[in-house]
Amino acid sequence: MAKILAVDDSVSMRGMVAFTLRGAGHEVAEAENGQLALDMARGSAFDLVLADVNMPVMDGIAMVRELRAMDAYKGVPILMLTTESHTEKKMEGKAAGATGWLVKPFDPEQLLATVKRVLG
């Protein structure tokens, strides 16, 4: 199945996302902030990146911007996991190059449906 990078500073959220995706047969790597995610993305080709917006060290939006600047990640789907219901945050994420978003709270079924949707 797909190689997915899950980025969230919350261990429980990341755990839930990773567990759910692994259960669906995906290979999941985890990073706790944008900076670590970038390091991992450089060393490996992910098919999908799921990232929280608010994180210490490097937030999700800055991370998307950096990823999109990398040739290998120009067209890779990146979904923001966000509790922000504010449209500005979504727009900021979009402007940085995010593919779309998944609004927290989401349950495992919603997550899988969205991932399936993105990966086709």
Binding site: D9, S10, S12, M13, M16, D52, N54, T83, K104, P105, F106, D107
Partner: peptide, 11 residues
Amino acid sequence: AHSIKGGAATF
């Protein structure tokens, strides 16, 4: 606060 909210809602 943000993380707690997100997690609480999810779980």
